[in-house]
Amino acid sequence: MRLNEKIAIVTGGASGFGAGIVKKFVEEGAKVIIADLNIELGKELAAELGDNASAIEVDVASGDSVKAMIDQVVTDHGKIDIVVNNAGIGHIPQPMDELCETVFDRIFQVNAKSVYNLAHYVVPLMKKAGSGAILNVASTGGVSPRPNLTWYNASKGWMITATRGMAVELAPFGIRVNAINPVAGDTPLLKTFMGEDTPEIREKFLSTIPIGRFSTPEDMGNAACFLCSDEASMVTGVAMEVDGGRCI
């Protein structure tokens, strides 16, 4: 029960890595708000997990939507101890000069601006409380980029730098900020990164991961739980690679 009685928000928590983080947090005693654009999927997961999980619809790219969500959580729970910025999108592999501006803008709204939006409304609450943990789900792509995913990689590199900057600035207020860098996982985003899902392309991806498998939602949940728990009270500004050796 490492997160007993903690109030945690997990964006993009209805599926994939986010759902793995939500499940682990609930197992460890937290009350978890699944903040997702897909509210129906979020409600399904909340119903599966019981009274310590609930779902709120939010578009993390919209400041107004995030504010409404934060206000609701504070009304319902009185505080926010943990925020996991997990919501993210990718793009089909393609040359950097061919990606259209609309897709580029959406990638940075969801992967980067969302971190700003959550911080804008949550950090003042955490400063007042004198404690808090923020976790940004970045990517190995932000450390060791793959070709033809340049703008996605750049958005995740932004998240890693933001994590370090936030950690330094917020440490005096008792707020820790870390990131995790998963390698590709068998989640709804996998096909986006691969372009198409075939045994040959999967084998090519797996050949770059020394441990020989994709990241799982459970892997992310375990890493996230540690970094957001008091066990990691001396850990801040870290971008932990949960990647089976991919970045070595």
Rank of each mutant, 00 (worst) to 15 (best):
A119Q: 10
Q72F: 02
K127D: 05
D105H: 11
K79R: 14
A46K: 04
V110D: 08
H91C: 12
G50V: 06
A47V: 09
N52M: 07
G63H: 07
C100H: 15
N52S: 13
V74S: 06
K113S: 03
A129T: 01
M69L: 10
D76K: 12
A138I: 04
G50N: 05
H77A: 04
G142M: 12
L45D: 00
E101L: 15
A68W: 00
Y116K: 11
V73Q: 01
V110P: 02
V122W: 03
D105T: 15
V137W: 05
I134R: 01
A112W: 00
P93L: 02
I82P: 01
L99N: 11
D71A: 11
S139I: 01
D64S: 14
T102V: 14
M96F: 15
Q72W: 05
V66T: 04
L41H: 03
P95Q: 14
Y121E: 05
A133R: 05
A133H: 02
A87Q: 09
E101H: 13
S65L: 01
D71G: 02
L41G: 14
A129S: 14
M69G: 09
L49M: 08
I70S: 03
I39W: 07
K128R: 15
N38E: 12
G130E: 03
Q72S: 13
D51T: 12
V122S: 06
V83T: 13
V58D: 01
Y116W: 11
V60T: 12
V74P: 01
D76W: 04
P93R: 09
G42A: 04
A133C: 07
P124Q: 00
N38L: 08
T102R: 13
V122Y: 09
T140A: 06
Q94E: 14
M126P: 06
V143T: 13
A129K: 08
H91A: 11
K43H: 15
G132V: 05
V74N: 02
N86H: 08
P145T: 08
Q94H: 12
N136K: 06
G88I: 04
S54H: 06
G141K: 06
A47N: 12
A61P: 00
V103W: 05
A129C: 09
G130L: 01
G141M: 00
E40D: 15
P93V: 02
I56M: 11
V122D: 09
F108N: 14
E40F: 12
E40V: 14
I92L: 11
G130S: 03
I107L: 15
T102D: 14
L45W: 03
C100A: 12
E98S: 15
S139V: 06
